[in-house]
Nucleic acid binder design. Structure first.
Length: 541
RNA sequence: GAUUGCGUAGCUCAGUCGGUAGAGCAGCGGCCUUUUAAGCCGUAGGUCCUGGGUUCAAGUCCCAGCGCAAUCACCA
């Protein structure tokens, strides 16, 4: 136990519900002989597996035999499968000498039927008194009830864990989003669809790894604690190492380390990386988020485009298969997944459109005709247009008038951004005003960019230096020149393609989740503890 | 950061014109060997987010704050 905490300082006034549960815990232990916090159990069947062992023939044969046995006084032959299961109680109905309850595990729900005549007296008392939320272990034949519900007819039960906390409502579950995020452990058992999203996320990440591994990429792990937070333009979290007495930053991107791997000779690397950005929070931004960065020596942004298209298509196809296996409606037209009101079609090839072309369609003028561009900007009433650089006006117009033209229902690569708004990207050899970069948009969200990476150390140094000049005082505290990275480039990095994909956002799309908080197990919320400890102090004073 | 909405029993939610707090589930007690969201009967349960204000009277109106959500902005 920890030393005195604010919570210990004042006795917690437990609700009547908790008091009743504690009383039951004591009764189970002292009167009925069931240890409320049990031990290892071997040979368990998942509830879905147990259900699958149900045989109507065996059930009918036993039922008939049991009726005859009752008349003749003999014993009924029983060929029903015996299963051992465990799960959390999510429904409980006490019918007197017969108790029905539903157990839930990660595979689903299964009814447990406990007949007073089939089990010892203490176990029957346990079944009657068990609470919503308790975890039970039960053994018995798998059969069904008169109403047709497949169930385990328990011949023995024991308590695995007594739950003391008041449970959520058994039909509506936990629906307040704040409670679902703060008490995810309750959300996950009370709302099975929530738990399903996280299981799907796990399978998606596995599939991404298999895909990358099959293509010969090495998964590597690079520093999260960095002396300089580089590789992206974002505010980092700061921390400190005591023994080294050294300021450190949580990484905002693994890019500069992964490129060092290329210098070292790893030709194809990726990292599924947690990044930390000290910025705003909304439906598609969490302060810590997972991305995958990929670098391939001797590739370019086109290589990354093919890879991304195959990967996203592959995941989408597997999700369609999952939906089909789960009995959900699937679209015969191909890999189509619902996302909110949308139906997104992940069929290859994805849409490819050049920035310049989309600009012309959306804005109606040539992006290189700055007079026309500025006239258009004034025409739509853009603020401070005169103060902005030509290319910044282009960028603003693009965001306002061209991006909305991207079909949210089709994954779309927007390619060849203007060099002026992508300072760290390699200009195209044939047309230096644009650069070898694309962004992929799906469902109106930006999922990630890719680049033909810059590997000329002199140009890289010049661009870094230029970027530092633009930094204000606050920025300069975390924007420092990574000289070691420049040294690495001087050693020589092969030409390469690089890619970053937002895994959380991809999972949102694949699982039909509206908010990034629905695909992050424990999203960051404002702490309640500050307010509570203030309250405690106030009470004591 | 701005705007809007929400915050009432453990959970899900009502609460009229400002008149002093309601339901269902969960809980507790009783009955019952076939329930399926909730078997039947009974019973108990409240910091109405917090703090001020207006009023004879505030869950309700006003102000400030806290938390959550949505939209926008910012950031990518």
């Amino acid at each position: 136990m920890a030393e005195t905490t604010p919570q210990d300082a004042v006795p917690l006034s437990e609700s009547e519900i908790v008091a009743a549960r504690r009383a039951k815990l004591k009764r189970f232990r002292d009167e009925l002989g069931f240890e409320p916090y049990g031990e290892r159990v071997d040979g368990l069947h998942a509830l879905a597996d147990a259900r699958a062992k149900f045989s109507e023939d065996a059930h009918v044969a036993y039922d008939t035999a049991a009726k005859q046995a009752k008349l003749s006084g003999g014993t009924a032959a029983d060929t029903r499968a015996i299963v051992k299961v465990a799960g959390r109680i999510v429904q409980h109905r006490d019918m007197g000498k017969l108790v029905f309850l539903f157990l839930r595990d990660s595979s689903g729900d299964l009814q447990l039927s406990i007949s007073k005549s089939a089990i010892d007296a203490n176990a029957f008392e346990l079944a009657k008194a068990a609470d919503y939320g308790d975890i039970l272990v039960a053994e018995g034949p798998i059969g069904r009830t008169q109403k047709g519900e497949v169930c385990v007819w328990a011949t023995s039960i024991s308590l695995a864990t007594k739950s003391l906390a008041p449970p959520p409502e058994k039909w509506h579950g936990l629906s307040d989003p704040e409670q679902r995020y703060r008490r995810r452990y309750v959300d996950m058992y009370a709302n099975p669809e929530s738990a399903k999203v996280f299981a799907m996320r796990s399978r998606i990440v596995s599939r991404i790894r298999r895909f990358m591994d099959a293509r010969g990429f090495l998964e590597v792990e690079t520093p999260v604690l960095q002396p300089m937070a580089g590789g992206a333009a974002a505010r980092p979290f700061t921390t400190h190492h005591n023994t080294l007495d050294m300021p450190l930053f949580m990484r905002i991107a693994p890019e500069l380390y992964l490129k060092r791997c290329l210098v070292g000779g790893m030709g194809k690397v990726y990292e599924i990386n947690r990044n930390f950005r000290n910025e705003g929070i909304d439906r598609s931004h969490n302060p810590e988020f997972t991305a995958m960065e990929v670098y391939q020596a001797f590739g370019d942004y086109g290589t990354m485009m093919e890879l991304t298209e195959s990967l996203v298509n592959n995941i989408a196809v597997s999700m369609v298969a999952e939906r089909e296996a789960a009995g959900l409606r699937v679209n015969a037209d191909g890999p189509v997944l619902p996302w909110g009101e949308m139906e997104i079609n992940y069929a290859m090839p994805f849409v490819r459109v050049k920035f310049e072309e989309l600009f012309r369609r959306g804005v109606g003028v040539d992006m290189r005709d700055f007079a026309a561009v500025r006239a258009k900007a004034r025409a739509i009433g853009m603020h401070h247009e005169a103060k902005l650089d030509n290319w910044l006006v282009v960028n603003k117009l693009f965001e306002e008038l061209a991006e909305p033209l991207i079909d949210p229902l089709r994954p779309t690569f927007v390619t060849d951004y203007p060099s002026a708004i992508s300072p760290l990207t390699r200009p195209s050899r044939t047309d230096p005003e644009v650069c070898e970069r694309w962004d992929i948009f799906i469902g109106g969200m930006e999922i990630g960019p890719a680049y033909t990476e810059l590997n000329d150390p002199d140009i890289q140094l010049a661009k870094f230096t230029e970027q530092l000049k633009g930094a204000d005082d606050e920025e300069s505290t975390f924007r420092t020149l990574d000289e070691d990275f420049i040294d690495a480039l001087r050693v020589g990095m092969p030409p390469a393609g690089g890619l970053g994909i937002g895994i959380d956002r991809l999972v949102m799309l694949m699982t039909d989740s509206a908010s990034i908080r629905d695909v992050i197990l424990f999203p960051l919320l404002k702490s309640m503890s500050a307010a509570e400890s203030t309250k405690v102090e106030g009470t004591q004073a």
